[in-house]
C-alpha cells in the first residue's frame, strides 16, 4: 500500500529558539488511523501543523514531509491544504465566518468551486455531521459539540484525503464525545488524531505514536504501547482505564 504521509527527519525551531521537533520520521499508509500522544509541550500540535503545510516548509536538505507522495514546498502548498484537512483545537478559532453556511463553504470557495457545487457540498457536509438545517445559524448560537461538528463539516467540505485532528474531544461532554467518535469512525479517509483522551485513541486508532520533548519515543500498536506502564509514566501519560481492566495484575 502506498503511504499517505511520509515524514523524514522533521525538525522545527520556534523564533525564540525553542526546539519543538528534533528529527522525527514515520510513515503512515493510506486508510490508516494513527494516534499521536504525549505530554503538554511534546510537539504534537507543531507536528500536525507541518502535515498541512501551515508552518514553513523544510529548510534543511535531509528533512522532508510528503503527502500522497508529494513533497510540501511553497509551490505545492495549495494542493496540500486541499489534500490534508486540519481540525484545530479550539472551534472558535476555526469558525471565523458569521454563519454556518459561509464557514462550511469557505474551503470549497477558496478552491474555486462553482456556487451550485458549493451549495451541494455544504448540504452534504452538514448532513454528514448531523447538522442539516443549521446553514443560517450563527456560530455563537451553537453548543460546544455543535461547533466542533461544524468545524468538521468545514474540513470535510474540502474533500481531504487525509484528516488531521488536534484534540477533537477537548471541551466536549460525554454525549458530544460519543457522537464525534462514531462520526469519525464513519469517515474512511486516513486519520491522524492527537489527543490526551487516551480512551479515544484506544477506540479509534490501531496504531499510536508517542512524542515527548520533540522526539519520537515510540511507534507501534496502540494496545501494546498504552499498556506499558513504565513508558506511559515516564512521558506524563497513564494507562487508560479500558486497558487496565484487561490486566488487573498490571
Amino acid at each position: 500500500m502506498s503511504s499517505a504521509i511520509e515524514v523524514k527527519n522533521l525538525q522545527y525551531e520556534y523564533h525564540d529558539g525553542t526546539k519543538a521537533l528534533r528529527g522525527i520520521s514515520f510513515n503512515i499508509a493510506e486508510g490508516e488511523c494513527v494516534g499521536v500522544i504525549g505530554p503538554n509541550g511534546a510537539g504534537k500540535s507543531t507536528l500536525l501543523l507541518h502535515l498541512n503545510g501551515i508552518l514553513p516548509a523544510a529548510s534543511k536538505v535531509d528533512q522532508s514531509v510528503k503527502v500522497m507522495g508529494q513533497e510540501i514546498t511553497n509551490e505545492s502548498r495549495g494542493i496540500i491544504h486541499q489534500m490534508v484537512g486540519l481540525l484545530f483545537q479550539n472551534p472558535d478559532d476555526q469558525l471565523f465566518c458569521p454563519t454556518v453556511f459561509e464557514d462550511v463553504a469557505f474551503g470549497p470557495q477558496q478552491f474555486g468551486k462553482s456556487p451550485e457545487d458549493i451549495n451541494q457540498i455544504v448540504f452534504d457536509a452538514l448532513e454528514h455531521v448531523g447538522l442539516a438545517g443549521y446553514e443560517h445559524r450563527s456560530p455563537h448560537h451553537l453548543s460546544g459539540g455543535e461547533k466542533q461538528r461544524v468545524c468538521l463539516a468545514g474540513v470535510l467540505a474540502c474533500k481531504p484525503k487525509v484528516l488531521v485532528l488536534d484534540e477533537p474531544t477537548k471541551d466536549l461532554d460525554p454525549r458530544g464525545k460519543r457522537e464525534l467518535k462514531s462520526l469519525l469512525q464513519s469517515i474512511p479517509s486516513t486519520k491522524i488524531i492527537a489527543s490526551h483522551d487516551l480512551e479515544l485513541i484506544v477506540e479509534l486508532c490501531p496504531r499510536t505514536i508517542v512524542l515527548d520533548k520533540g522526539e519520537l519515543i515510540a511507534d507501534g500498536f496502540t494496545v501494546d504501547l498504552l499498556r506499558n506502564g513504565e513508558l506511559m509514566l515516564t512521558h506524563g501519560l497513564e494507562i487508560p482505564h479500558c486497558l487496565r481492566h484487561l490486566h488487573p495484575h498490571n
Binding site: L49, N52, I54, G78, H81, Q82, G85, L86, F88, N90, D92, D93, Q94, F96, F106, G107, Q110, F111, G154, V155, C158
Partner: peptide, 15 residues
C-alpha cells in the same frame, strides 16, 4: 494571539 490562530485556520482551508 487568537488572530494568529484564525489565520492558520484560514490558511489550512486554502486561503
Amino acid at each position: 494571539e487568537r488572530a494568529d490562530r484564525i489565520y492558520s485556520a484560514m490558511r489550512a482551508r486554502g486561503w
